[in-house]
Design a protein around this nucleic acid. Sequence first.
RNA 1: GCAGGAGUAACUCAGUUGGUAGAGUGUCAGCUUCCCAAGCUGAAGGUCGCGGGUUCGAGUCCCGUCUCCUGCUCCA
Length: 523
Amino acid sequence: MSTNDQDLMQKIVSLCKRRGFVFQSSDIYGGLRSAYDYGPLGAELKRNLMSLWWRDMVHRREDVVGLDASIIMHPKVWHASGHLAGFSDPLVDCLVCKERFRADKAMETHATAEGDVLTLNLGDKGRAKTAEALIAERFGVQLERRGKDLVGAAANDRGYACPNCNSPWLSEERQFNLMFKSSVGAVDPMGAVAAAIEGGELDGLTGRDLRAKIDALTAESAVYLRPETAQAMFVQFANIQQSMAMKVPFGIAQMGKSFRNEITVEHFIFRSVEFEQMEMEFFCEPGTDDEWMDFWSNARIEWWQRYANDPERFRLRAHTPDELAHYAKGCFDVEYLYPWGWGELEGIANRTDYDLQKHAKHSGAKLEYFDPQQQKKYTPYVIEPAAGATRGVLVYLCDAYHEETVEGAKGPETRVVLKFHPKLAPIKVAVMPLVKKNGMPEKARALMERFFEKGINAKYDEQHAIGRRYRRHDEIGTPWCLTIDGQTLEDDTITIRDRDTMAQRRIGIDDAVAEIEALLRKD
RNA sequence: GCAGGAGUAACUCAGUUGGUAGAGUGUCAGCUUCCCAAGCUGAAGGUCGCGGGUUCGAGUCCCGUCUCCUGCUCCA
């Protein structure tokens, strides 16, 4: 990331806090890793974004219906979907270079047989020297140092060495379950574990056997927070198809929180353990899936671009075969050029009939569709556009942030403007008296009432000089400012100021609400 | 998880060899002000990330820890 881009990101983070968009979770307690709170303006922005998605994906389409499913689902759902297996790969730490890696992958790339003579490579001489001392002290083995290599280590019976430095000194394999595990019921399952320990049931058990025994003790109450919203749409496929008499092709859409214990988090709200998704599962006849994949890929990138200032910063990228998830036939990412580079915003995946088949098999339910016209029965294929709502917030913050040099009272100065699309803007219009006297505040408050009646998020503002108020609203992205001035008292006209051009024109005070409504209607 | 950097007021940052915690911006109140961060007066606001230690005395030195940033690694 260049210095400028790093600056940009810092400015956005700083503005988010200063103006009430995004705060660090539990800030006064020192913050909680990777958790963020959306402040008054951030909450509006996120809601606006998600409402737009719902309007365009559900309300404006005959063939898509909505769902709002429980975050906690039956554990069998996650066994069937493969998440419980896939989310818990055994990981190993190298005790020499501290690298953490997947045991099964190391088995493929750095397989060893017991007694093999290994050469460790630490990358540079200094590290080799440190490692030599560490190995001698901690493991009692003196290796021969040749430059950055250490020669003479013996492979153990583990079957693999560290993929980074080739060391055989490794931690035990540990499960890092990426699903958030919890338990239902008021009785803490740890009680059963404690009782088993006291009763000697765990005596003599180690490693995997011990884990399996503890899992069995807690299994009855174990539940998981969903790592994606998708599974509920598959599980409720038959209920929704029948209750709504949907004909394939059709889609089920859902927005909501998901949780993943990712190993690392990065880039502000870009990747966090708790995040919000906007997902749609589109069920279609096998054989038509490629067409629908094309359709949705294009529809989705166009949707993101429609509300952006700079459509050039969005692109569609096809996954290479080695990137594809095990269930997917194909996948396109809608990517955005974030300040740190291109990154994912939404993935459009062809999940085939993988999920419906899996759930049919595990549950015994029939998850098929009978096409009355063709008189044939089949398991639909699924095209899934899955977007990150919280990522969308970040994308539009980055897209909206502009700095301009304008002529101020004290010479050239920087104007910070968030150029949000009016539909996304947290506050739609500011209503302000030019000065706090001569009945102007009363006129302004009367106008505010009319916006309240229409449900348009308007804000009354009389603090400080008028120029400062305009700048403050520029900085939070308010598209229009309405100002009551001396002339208003004479002829009932007010000025409307445009955020982006700073241009003003006069309109009748009685036309103000209709004017703003008309401006907001535009896509 | 690894490596490096950082944490002092709401924000951006000063703070000397260890000796009473500072500025600018912002916020609030009042005055002034008829259009783009104007001016004047006054005020509030700080567990110096947190916890230990050394010291007569720690924002400053030492140890631990948390959080953020950057690069790797990871991301069924």
